[in-house]
């Protein structure tokens, strides 16, 4: 038997009740409205790799991330990290121990640091919360060490977050994530609020740290180029479903799902290679009333009756009837 993957996500589901208040419903005779933010998502992450989830707004990728770390309860399915269930109420005690090994880096470095706290206190918070090191002097030393690690000066600990630029704040957030010696870090759009030159610094730093400490990343992003730079494997999400999971290299050289191909073609062509691209059509439908069958069918050039009626299940990492039936040849091929 092969060892279990570090993180296992099985048939994860999340529904939100987005109904109007009870009184409005009664008066307008409108039914309850349920938003399926995440609908049957399964994937696993091997130790030391970077698994990326990409998708556009409303795809449910951030919701998955929050459920994986336990910030959001699940509506169905299971998350297992290091053989400990994040969802089974019986494993509460084990989960508490798991928590220090699992941290998160958020999108907005302006909101992810408490503006009233000095940076050293922010970084020391997980150290104190998990009792990583004892004694005030050791904590101070450890904070200084962490600041140095992420490319800041130990004296920067005295400053408040507003005295830093966005990139430096994200460094502080990374130092906080590392403070408890975490080895699994969920990164929710960690660079999408940053400028490109700063984004490069942060991405490089994250790769260096991964190499140094053998970190495992779950990397959430809407930017395919960033994902290409970071990920070992990639999952593409569309309207709460995982439509394709592939090795990163394969995803970019041989995208399989029509949506993946469309996403790739939508990325602006910086090299101006003049590569032929299929023009993108349509927009993401309202997730409250998703299309029947395969939710991508209204925008898909390969859709047929079966796609409109039947939701495709993932086979070999692709959830697409056309791919399974070999109908992809009909798709306009880039010259």
């Amino acid at each position: 038997m092969s060892p279990r993957p570090y993180v296992e996500v099985t048939d994860l589901k999340k529904v939100f009740d987005v109904s109007k208040p009870w009184l409005n419903r009664v008066i307008e005779r409108s039914p309850k409205q349920i938003l399926k933010a995440v609908d049957g998502v399964s994937f696993d992450i091997r130790k030391g790799e970077t698994f990326a989830l990409v998708g556009e707004s409303g795809s449910g990728k951030s919701t998955v991330a929050k459920m994986v770390v336990g910030l959001l309860g699940v509506s169905g399915g299971e998350v297992t990290i290091d053989n400990i269930s994040m969802t089974d109420p019986a494993q509460r005690a084990q989960r508490a121990r798991l928590r220090r090994k699992m941290q998160m880096i958020f999108q907005d470095p302006y909101a992810s640091l408490n503006p009233r706290w000095r940076v050293d206190r922010i970084i020391a918070e997980p150290i104190r919360a998990f009792n990583v090191v004892e004694g005030e002097a050791n904590i101070v030393a450890r904070v200084g060490e962490l600041l140095t690690l992420v490319g800041l000066h130990p004296d920067d600990g005295r400053k408040f977050p507003h005295e830093f630029s966005g990139g430096q704040r994200q460094r502080v957030a990374i130092a906080r994530a590392l403070a408890s010696n975490a080895d699994f870090i969920v990164c929710d759009e960690p660079t999408s609020a940053l400028d490109v030159s700063v984004q490069a610094q942060i991405l490089n730093l994250m790769r260096d740290l991964q190499e140094k400490f053998g970190l495992t990343y779950l990397f959430i992003s809407h930017n395919l180029a960033v994902v290409r730079h970071m990920a070992t494997r990639i999952g593409v999400m569309y309207l709460g479903r995982l439509v394709e999971v592939s090795e990163a290299k394969q995803m970019f050289s041989h995208p399989r799902h029509p949506y993946t191909r469309m996403l790739l073609d939508a990325v602006p062509d910086l090299a101006m290679s003049g590569r032929a691209r299929i023009p993108v059509a349509g927009e993401i439908p309202n997730p409250i009333n998703p299309p029947s069958g395969c939710t991508f069918h209204p925008r898909c050039p390969l859709a047929n009756e079966r796609c409109r009626a039947e939701n495709p299940l993932p086979i070999n990492g692709v959830a697409c009837h056309a791919v399974v039936e070999g109908r992809t040849l009909l798709m306009p091929v880039p010259a």
Partner: peptide, 14 residues
């Protein structure tokens, strides 16, 4: 510094 789909470099210019 801009990551691209084409170039598969390990490190971005910083």
């Amino acid at each position: 510094a801009i990551p691209t789909l084409e170039a598969a470099t390990d490190r971005l210019v910083q």
